[in-house]
Amino acid sequence: MSIYTRRRITNGVVMSLSVAATAFGLLWLVLVLWTLLENGIAAITPALFSQMTPPPGSAGGLLNAIFGSVVMTFIATLVGTPTGILAGTFLAEYSRGSRFGEVVRFINDILLSAPSIIVGLFVYEVMVVRMGHFSAWAGSMALAIIVIPVVVRTTEDMLNLVPNALREAAAALGSPKWKVIIMVSYRAAIQGMVTGVMLAVARIAGETAPLLFTALNNQFWSTNLNAPMANLPVVIFQFAMSPYADWQVLAWGGALLITLTVLCLNIGARALASWSTFKQ
């Protein structure tokens, strides 16, 4: 066999393996989504949205869990977004080339990938132990800590894409730097920043680990933020691990609900980002 044939065969094999790997990766996406639809669709009934989580053996829905998840995600976003945007603004606008900025960026990137269960432990130590009980506030704070690094990162990236000429033009008109940032930089980068917040919401919508030790769970309807609150991920965890068939069906329904929300947010965020003015 000539060297040429051998090289061609090697190339063919390597390239086919690469195609196979891609197909393999996509296969899992399809499989997971398919099973979710198959098992979850039966659970999507009006009762799911109108009744409370049932005791084992009786019918019910996930209303209290859906409510809890929405409330905690909302509070976490409300706290995490301004914090993340301001910190990201500092990194992009005030700390170019500074040592402190580099350290913050580095730490932020580590927080971005740090295990979320550690965040849960932290909030448990700081809030749950001090307050003496689990609460929705603690759950919201744990989620907010996960939101912050995501928003910091995207805000900084998006502000860095704003051309300096815009800032210089505004400064040349005599506007102070804070006005330049708020009225020029933010306006130019707003789409990207919204994308970042959407991705952050998508990230926390399905987070379970940090809620286990903070918001815990609640079988009943509760709007008291100072008490344990039901939430979809923890309910899914509890119901799926249980031996009761009714509970497992509800778990599948909740899983489908979360996944659809997360995927919609993700795809929406990506669509928004691809419109963005300065991205290519």
């Binding site: 996406l29 997971v32 998508a202 680990a209 997360v262």
Partner: peptide, 11 residues
Amino acid sequence: IELLAAIPSII
């Protein structure tokens, strides 16, 4: 492929 990362771990 990136949507694989978006699916929550509990799923």
